[in-house]
Nucleic acid binder design. Structure first.
Lengths: 186, 186
DNA sequence: AGAGCCATGTAACCGGTTACATGATTAG
DNA sequence: CTAATCATGTAACCGGTTACATGGCTCT
């Protein structure tokens, strides 16, 4: 099993979806912590089906192409449940902006400030978007009595990470700008 | 040019090194934001050499295998300088732990708490290590009058990010544990 | 008429990991 | 005697991206 496989199972555990739906979801909420293109999703679904973790029903539509609606099986739910609480293996960080920061001593400080201002803005915008989603999501979670077995709980936790991550990133950018604006001797 | 190419040029801009040295560095400081195995580094150095961004001198040693000491060329320095202030293209986040958090509603809360306690510990340890390096590095930077054109400045910025990143991650883990410990109805 | 959405797939490529391969010296 | 360090490389594989391919419907 690959992480992508678990990601797909995780989305299907919430409700049955098509490959197209899953690809759309990965451009939205889920994409904040995992993403894949449709060209990777469709073959992976075929593989999950061949291993018995999902099944599909073909839904014929008039005026639209037919679609395959995938359901998670009990076997799929079992591997997913087993996976969620096993330790995550740490993958190395590869952050282009930090790499640039490492090399910034070679650059003109003015240009460097520009770069980090752009990046700060980007992360502040992403932050604002997450915060909006969080407010909406929290209301719904309260309605469900903050149940830890509601899928909303998972969304809530992951979205909270998105928020703190973006805030931290933006604040680092701001701090870098401050360092760049300081005179060399002080 | 690939990001790995820039990463290697960035390290060589500081001082000449062998492929082996570069691989070691990527297990240490640089690995906190970029990493590669020697099997990727050696061919990349060959490529950089063929493009004229680096040169090497063979150093014969007694009692040790010979080595190739790579130097950055003026052409290499130019592409690197040009790259550092151009906007970084955002690569999608793929974080296995957040993915698990998204699916945590399927799990036993007790096991979930265990998972996040482990992860919190891991990030706290990494944080402590970075903070130690930061203290040492800052002293040296002060000696160089906090010059923005000193390579220490780049190390300082990138290490600061490592610190705030790990702290944020650990605090999110802690917050998740708190959520998991709360009773469902309150 | 053309762009965009719905819907599914395949093929080539690329960056990165794992494993294979070699071989001398030094420390425990 | 064994493991680790120094030192450099190649080959197979795998996850993910880009591009190719098809085709009807709807909205502007």
């Amino acid at each position: 099993m690959t992480n992508l496989g678990y990601a797909l199972l995780g989305m299907l555990a919430y409700e049955p979806r098509t490959g197209y739906d899953l690809a759309q979801l990965m451009k939205q909420q889920v994409g904040y912590f995992w993403s894949a293109k449709h060209s990777q999703i469709y073959p992976e679904l075929t593989r999950l089906e061949s291993e018995g973790f999902v099944t599909f029903e073909v839904i014929e539509q008039q005026d639209r192409p037919h679609k395959k609606l995938y359901h998670i099986t009990s076997a799929g739910l079992e591997v997913l449940r087993n996976w969620v609480t096993t330790p995550a293996e740490s993958t190395p960080v590869r952050d282009e902006l930090i790499l640039k920061a490492y090399c910034i001593w070679l650059a003109d400080p003015g240009k460097a400030i520009e770069l980090f201002k752009q990046e700060e803005l980007r992360h502040r915008q992403q932050l604002a978007q997450y915060e909006q989603l969080y407010i909406w999501g929290e209301e719904n979670l309260v309605k469900e009595q903050r149940s830890k077995s509601s899928p909303l709980f998972g969304k809530y936790l992951s979205l909270a990470r998105g928020i703190s991550y973006e805030r931290e990133y933006a604040e680092w950018c701001r701090w870098v700008i401050e360092q760049l604006e300081k005179p060399d001797f002080f």
